[in-house]
Design a protein around this nucleic acid. Structure first.
Lengths: 166, 166
DNA sequence: CAAATAAGATTGAACTCTCAACTATTCCCA
DNA sequence: TGGGAATAGTTGAGAGTTCAATCTTATTTG
């Protein structure tokens, strides 16, 4: 057993796949972001109000939402403040836990989601779904679920890893 | 044929795959970014010097590099300036086209890439490659190549789409 | 060939995100 | 039950990114 730490480089096909993932992913996100920018919001802003719109109460705890959209709590705080200024969300106290804040979608915000959703969906189709076979897409989804489960709880919402508090 | 524009929502499994892609992708990038942050650089900075290190001349035109790593020219200009301050790259005039700039990896920069590459690779393996079957990973790569080719030339490096210049 | 247009890159101001520090509340347990 | 630790969220300053305008050099075309 070689005890030395020789680097196990990626194989040629692995290398290629990894590059495609990184570059293609960046291109996709950018395209979607620009698509939404034409309607006055960014992809991550859309994710936030869209997630809220799917709750039957139309509200969610800040930290829960931060985890869901993979943003730091601090970032969500700032973004929520901006969204609040635009009238799309409001903060409500969370009864039962006075530390908590419920970010709540306003009717205006809900209207915005409904207006944007079909547009955004078209772009997701055009750039992603329609470019893949059903099987490819399903495999992609499964793969990313694997990735997610491996990373679950990897870092908390403010960037400190679980084992960072020694 | 219904001429109305009713929204064709994603099917349940499509929805699930898309969400996994978005969330898993964000988690992955974030994990890799943090992994590199521990060594003093961000993922996108690493991408830049890593791409340069693979050229036999160890240099690349700004715009070509910007396209490769999917950053706007402006962003690359700023980032290159910061990398230059750290001594990892230098700008050189591009003979043959006096508009051009060749971003060039310094020996120090090359050393940094060599130092970081194995670390980064381990993280890519741990969070992505090792979590997927060979077939899943290959399919993922192929899928993202499809996405890439669909988006190729979709927007230039400063964010203006090809058909934006009317 | 001169004017117009395009391409390569930069600039600086506005905006967004990160990081560390901080307040407040709740949880744990001795 | 009280005090330490963990959780929820915010803050502000610094770092990074975007956007539109600008400058310079190449290329096109009338």
């Amino acid at each position: 057993m070689a005890a030395h730490s020789e680097t196990n480089w990626l194989t040629e096909p692995e290398q290629r796949a990894w590059r495609a993932y990184l570059r293609g992913g960046r291109m996709l996100i950018e395209a979607l972001d620009r698509g939404l920018a034409a309607h006055g919001l960014s992809l991550s802003e859309y994710e936030i109000i869209s997630m809220l719109s799917e709750e039957d109460t139309r509200q969610m705890r800040m930290s829960e939402l931060a985890d869901l959209v993979v943003q730091s709590r601090s970032r969500l705080t700032h973004t929520a403040t901006r969204l609040e200024k635009r009238g799309w969300v409001v903060r409500e106290p969370c009864q039962g836990d006075r530390r908590g804040v419920l970010l709540t979608l306003t009717p205006t915000g809900a209207a915005k989601v409904e207006q944007i959703a079909p547009v955004h969906l078209d772009q997701v189709r055009a750039h992603l779904v329609d470019r893949l076979s059903a099987e490819q897409f399903a495999t992609l989804g499964g793969a990313m679920e694997n990735v997610m489960s491996g990373l679950d709880g990897f870092a908390d919402s403010d960037g400190r890893a679980p084992n960072d508090r020694y």
